[in-house]
Nucleic acid binder design. Structure first.
Lengths: 343, 343
DNA sequence: CTGTTAGCGCTTTCAG
DNA sequence: CTGAAAGCGCTAACAG
C-alpha cells in the first residue's frame, strides 16, 4: 500500500535526456562551461519530473552541509528570538539553513548540542554562551577543523573566534552615570553571576561610573541572581528589607527590572522619587510599565544579521584561518520616566 | 597549512580493533546481538580516537535524517519562542535536531522554506501557517511521500495532517460572554483577516456569544488588521473617532490590545469604565499594563511539546499513513482589571 | 555474534 | 563542452 514513490535522481533525468549524470549534475548548478541549451533542457526536465536534490549525497561528497548551527542559552526571550529572526533572514538568503539548539544555561547541554551539530557537519557555528560556561573545550573540535565559530552577545575571547556584541562596559557606565546625574547617591546593581563578559563588563562600567561620580561602592550594593522575573520580585523584597535602601537601581535586564518595579510599587515605594530604576535591553515591556523604564536599547535583529553575515563571509571566502576581531554594535541609553528625578 | 586533519571513520576504528566496519557500525548503535565486550571496546576506541559519526553517510544510506523541520510565521514573539523551546526540548531528547524557517506571513517564503526542508529530507514537519496561506499545495510533496506534516496553532484541515490547537471558538465565546456579563452592550472585535481558522473560530465564538446575550452584531463592530502594536494604536484612533463608541473590545492578541489600551488611555478614555478591553495569549505584558489585561491563557511551551511528541510518535511507530485527528489543548480565561466593570 | 558485499545519490578528477 | 569511473562514510542484506 501507498508505496512511497522512488526517489528521482540525476540518473533518471540523465537517462531521459541521453546525457551523463555528471552533465546533469553540472547543469543543475551554475557550472562554468556547459552548453546553455543543455542546461536549459536539464532544468526543465528536472522541474517536470519533480526532481529534488538529495543533500546528503551531495554533502557527503562535497563535504559541505550548507547548514549553520546556532546555540543559545534560551530561545524564549524577545531579544533572542529577534536575534534568531535576523539570522534566519540572512542565512536563508545565502542558501543555508539554520539548525538551532538551546543550552538552558547548562554547559552539559551546550556540549550535547555542539556534538549533535558536529555530527551534522555544520559549516559554521553561531554561539551565545550559557551562564556557567567557563571553558570552550566542547567547541574545540570545530576550531581544530577550521569550522568557523562566532560568538555573539555572551562572547568568549579566543584568537580564532570573532566576537559580536555591544560595548557593555560603556553601556553600564552610561546608565550608572545617568542615575548619578539624576541625584542618586546610593546606586545598586543587580546582575547575573559575573564570570561572563557581558555582565562583568556592565559591572565594571557601573563601578567606574560610581568612582567618577565620587560615589562609594560597597558589596551590599551588588546583587547577583538569574535575572528572571521571579528574581526581580525577590530583589524588591530584599531592597524593602535593607537597613539603608538604595535610591537608584540598575538591573541588568528589563524583565527582572520590571518585576522588581512592580513589587516595589506594591510596597509603597515611589518610582523614581524614592528609588530610580533602570533596566537593560529595551524589551517591549519597558514601554508598558508605569513609569516607563529607562534602559539600554540594542537591536537583537541586527545582531543576528551581523553575526550571520560575518559567518557567511568566512564561509564564502573560504579562509583557512578566521580573521580575528570583535565587532561592537551600537547601543543607546533610552531615558524614560523611571529615572527622571529632576526636570 | 593547517591541514584539516582527515576524518576518522568506522574503518579506522575497525582496522585498529581487527574488526569489520559492519561490526563497528553495529557496536556504535545499540544493535541487538553484539558481544557486550566488543561493543565496549568499540565505544572506547571511538572515544579515544575522537570519532564522530558522519550523519550524511548514515542518512544517505538509511534514508532517515533525524531532522525535523519547523515553519512558523514569525520567530519573534513570546508565544512562538515558547513553542519552539518546547519543541526543541522534546525533539532533542528523542535524538532529533530541529531546523527552523519563518514565513514572515508570506506563502512564497513558506514554500521556499518547505523546499529547503524537503531537500534536507526532514523526517517530519511542524507547521504553523502564514496569514495568506490558503492552499497547502507546497506541502504536497511531503504528504505524497508520507513524511508527516503536523499543523499547530494556525492549522489546516487535511485528512493526513494532525492539528494541534486550542478551542478558539470556545475561547472567543468565553471572552465575549465575560464582557457581556460585565455589562458591555456594544462589543467590538479586532482580529486578523479571517480566512485562517484560528481567527475565524474566535470570530464565530464572538458572534455566538453576542447572539446568546441578545446583542446585535453589525459590521462596524469588526476590525481586521495585522494585530501588531502599531495596528493597536491605529485601532484606538479609530475607536476614538467612532460616532458611537464601543463599551467593550475583544482584541485577538495581547500586543495589539495593550498598544490599543495605552493609546485609549492617552485619549482620556477610562478602562474599564468607558471601554473594557480584553486580549488573547497571556503575554507577559498583560500583567504589566495598567489595568492588567484580561486575556486567554494557553501555553506555547506545552503546544510545542505536544506537537513534537505527536510527530515523534508517528516517526517511531513508522505509520504508513498518519492517524488523523485534532488535539485540542487547554486554555483559560484570565480575568483581570481591564474588564472588571462590576465586582 | 561477526564478516562480505553492495550500494545510497552525488561530485569530481581525468580524459576525450 | 561532455562522459567514465571512482568513491565520500555508512548500513543492510545475506552468509557463515
Amino acid at each position: 500500500m501507498n508505496q512511497p514513490d522512488k526517489e528521482i535522481t540525476i540518473y533518471d533525468i540523465a537517462k531521459k535526456l541521453n546525457l551523463s549524470a555528471a552533465t546533469v549534475s553540472r547543469g543543475l548548478k551554475d557550472h562554468p562551461g556547459i552548453n546553455i541549451n543543455t542546461k536549459k533542457r536539464i532544468l526543465e526536465a528536472a522541474a517536470e519530473m519533480g526532481y529534488s536534490s538529495n543533500s546528503f549525497a551531495s554533502n557527503l561528497r562535497s563535504k559541505r552541509s550548507n547548514i549553520i548551527g546556532v546555540i543559545v542559552p534560551r530561545l524564549n526571550s524577545i531579544f533572542m528570538s529577534d536575534v534568531i529572526a535576523g539570522m534566519e533572514q540572512v542565512v536563508n538568503d545565502a542558501g543555508y539553513t539554520l539548525i538551532i539548539g538551546q543550552s538552558l544555561e547548562s554547559v552539559q547541554k551546550e556540549a550535547k548540542n555542539a556534538r549533535a551539530m558536529f555530527s551534522n557537519r555544520v559549516d559554521g557555528l553561531l554561539v551565545s554562551l550559557s551562564y556557567d560556561t567557563t571553558s570552550i573545550a566542547h567547541l574545540e573540535p570545530f576550531i581544530k577543523r577550521n569550522i568557523p565559530v562566532i560568538f555573539f552577545d555572551r562572547v568568549f575571547e579566543h584568537k580564532q573566534c570573532p566576537n559580536i556584541h555591544i560595548d557593555n562596559f560603556k553601556a553600564g557606565y552610561e546608565i550608572t552615570q545617568h542615575l548619578a546625574q539624576q541625584g542618586c547617591k546610593r546606586i545598586m546593581h543587580v546582575s547575573a553571576p559575573h564570570q561572563k563578559h557581558v555582565y562583568a563588563d556592565r559591572l565594571n562600567g557601573y563601578k567606574a561610573a560610581l568612582a567618577d561620580n565620587g560615589l562609594a561602592f560597597t558589596d551590599e550594593l551588588l546583587l547577583a541572581n538569574d535575572l528572571s522575573a521571579k528574581a526581580g520580585v525577590e530583589t524588591a523584597h530584599h531592597i524593602v528589607n535593607m537597613a539603608e535602601r538604595p535610591d537608584g537601581v540598575f538591573v541588568s535586564n528589563d524583565a527582572c527590572a520590571v518585576a522588581c518595579m512592580q513589587t516595589l510599587k506594591k510596597a509603597g515605594i515611589k518610582i523614581p522619587e524614592d528609588i530610580a530604576v533602570a533596566g537593560f535591553n529595551n524589551d517591549p515591556i519597558a514601554c508598558v510599565i508605569e513609569p516607563n523604564l529607562t534602559t539600554i536599547d540594542y537591536k537583537g535583529y541586527e545582531m543576528g544579521e551581523v553575526a550571520a553575515r560575518v559567518l557567511i563571509g568566512h564561509l564564502v571566502n573560504n579562509y583557512d584561518l578566521l580573521l580575528t576581531h570583535s565587532l561592537i554594535l551600537r547601543h543607546e541609553l533610552v531615558v524614560r520616566d523611571s529615572t527622571r528625578k529632576i526636570n
